[in-house]
Simulated assay, not measured.
Amino acid sequence: MKKFALSWSGGKDGCLALDVLRKQGIEVASLVTTVPAEIGRTFGHGEKKELIKLQGEALGIPVHFIECTFEEYSQKFVQELKQLKERNQLTGIAFGDLYFEPHREWGEKVAKEVGIEAVYPLWMEKKEALHALQTFVESGYKSTVIRVREDVLDESWLGKELDHAFLNAIQQKDVCPMGEAGEYHTYVHDGPLFKKKILLQRPEVIQLETTKKLEYRNYFLLEK
């Protein structure tokens, strides 16, 4: 049986990738999340480690954090992925990227160095992004917008659920519907593969570089 690690930042893309892998009968032995030592938050989404740990617990999949600096990102990723490969007998690593070619090239290079397969279960053409968002909206997973790029989306988008209203509204903006260029990021808190759901409370908006982020002060698991 194939056994994979999955690159995980806590959002809709990784969650969809996990769903596809599980439907293909692939075991996901570990969620892999990179955390820059300089910031102590996840790369890309800027999420707190505690909220990623909560997702792992809710899904019943261990989370492996790779702590690294920007300079040693690739080197540390390869090094720790080799350890995960030995520990979990991994045969591959999956990524939730959609169509950004440089990300795929990087992931395939890393996997080759580790000696495992690189898989992109969501890979598509750019024009298919709207259909991918519709697939997520109808998947049963619950996800909230937790970060926006200020040059394209204002803070009124923070806290929006990825539902049919969001699907309609995002089409009125000049952005990738799936936010592939970092226009927005999400946090998944419930869905078919979740053994427990995550309750998020007391949100407040904080500033991170050129983005605004929704920060939750209270968060905990609930039985389903």
Rank of each mutant, 00 (worst) to 15 (best):
M1S: 04
K2C: 14
K3A: 06
F4I: 08
L6E: 01
L6Q: 00
K12F: 00
G14E: 05
C15F: 11
V20S: 13
R22D: 15
R22Q: 14
K23N: 12
G25Q: 07
V28G: 08
V28C: 07
V28S: 06
T34K: 13
T34F: 05
P36E: 02
P36I: 02
A37H: 13
E38T: 09
G40C: 09
T42W: 03
T42K: 01
F43C: 09
G44N: 13
G46I: 06
G46H: 01
K48F: 14
E50M: 02
I52S: 08
I52P: 04
L54Y: 15
E57S: 11
A58D: 02
G60F: 11
E67C: 12
C68A: 06
T69Y: 07
E72M: 06
Y73L: 08
K76R: 09
V78N: 00
V78I: 10
Q79E: 14
E80H: 01
E86W: 00
N88C: 15
N88E: 12
N88G: 10
Q89R: 09
L90K: 01
T91S: 09
G92E: 01
I93M: 10
A94C: 04
A94W: 00
F95H: 06
G96R: 06
L98H: 02
Y99V: 02
Y99K: 04
F100R: 03
E101Y: 07
H103L: 00
H103K: 00
R104A: 07
W106F: 14
G107L: 10
V110H: 07
A111Q: 03
E113D: 09
I116W: 10
L122I: 04
W123I: 00
M124T: 10
M124G: 12
K126G: 01
H131K: 15
A132S: 08
Q134D: 11
E138Y: 04
S139Q: 05
S139F: 03
I146Y: 11
E150S: 14
D151V: 07
D151G: 13
L153G: 02
L153C: 03
D154V: 01
E155D: 14
S156W: 10
S156R: 08
W157D: 02
G159C: 07
L162P: 01
F166R: 02
L167R: 03
N168F: 10
A169D: 15
Q171K: 11
C176V: 14
A181E: 15
A181V: 04
E183L: 04
H185D: 04
V188P: 05
V188C: 09
D190H: 05
F194V: 01
K195N: 11
K195M: 12
K196C: 10
I198E: 00
I198P: 00
L199M: 14
R202W: 09
P203I: 00
I206Y: 06
Q207W: 12
T210F: 12
T210H: 14
K212H: 09
L214V: 05
E215M: 13
N218G: 15
Y219W: 14
L222I: 05
E223T: 11
